[in-house]
Simulated assay, not measured.
Amino acid sequence: MSRTRTGRLAAAALLAVGTAVGAAAPAFAAIGPGDVNGKHPRDVGCRADQQVIYHTIIRDGSGNARGYVDLMYSVHCHAAWAHVHGVKPVANQTYVPQGYVARSDGRHSPTCYTPEGGQDCYTTMLWDKDPLKARARGIIDPNGATNTVYAAWTPWY
């Protein structure tokens, strides 16, 4: 093979690698508020680097643990969401874990509710890149009525 042909093949190979690398670039593209607000982290790839920023126990009036709320965060997505877990499965609309994530500008996610037989719920995400901050609220409704609830906030992140 001549040097010219070898040089052309090498150039074509570099171009092909550059194109392949360029094709992969959208996986690392910048993420903005419209990419995450109101979406579930599993649907847009934000669970890949999820972290529990704060873990707060939800206690009843006697100090017994009834569940917990986690403030979850993805650095890649600049987004926060809440995970609420109850100590026992939901039965007949009792001990229903529910929660939401709130942002420092007053915006908050829709409330998540745990379905019958479950113990967990996850909210959708909120963009919270600096200067915005987020915190999560977890609630356990022990009797299906609004007159008694056990609740806790995580600190701001």
Rank of each mutant, 00 (worst) to 15 (best):
M1S: 07
A10I: 12
A12F: 06
A13G: 05
A16P: 02
A20K: 06
P26E: 15
P26L: 15
V36K: 00
G38K: 12
K39V: 07
D43I: 04
A48F: 01
D49A: 07
Q50L: 08
Q50N: 09
Q51G: 09
V52S: 15
H55F: 08
T56N: 09
I58E: 13
R59S: 03
R59I: 12
G61Q: 11
S62E: 15
G63R: 00
A65G: 11
A65P: 04
G67A: 06
G67K: 00
L71P: 02
Y73L: 12
V75H: 13
W81Q: 15
A82W: 02
H83K: 13
V84C: 09
H85Q: 14
H85P: 01
G86C: 06
V87S: 07
V87G: 05
K88N: 02
N92I: 10
Q93R: 10
P97N: 09
G99R: 11
Y100I: 03
V101H: 02
D105I: 09
D105Q: 08
G106M: 01
G106Q: 14
S109P: 02
C112P: 00
T114G: 13
T114P: 06
T123Y: 06
M125N: 07
L126G: 12
W127F: 10
D128M: 14
K129V: 08
P131Q: 12
A136Q: 02
R137Y: 07
G138N: 01
I140Y: 04
I140P: 00
I140T: 04
P142H: 00
N143K: 06
T146Q: 02
T148C: 05
V149E: 00
A151L: 03
A152R: 06
T154C: 05
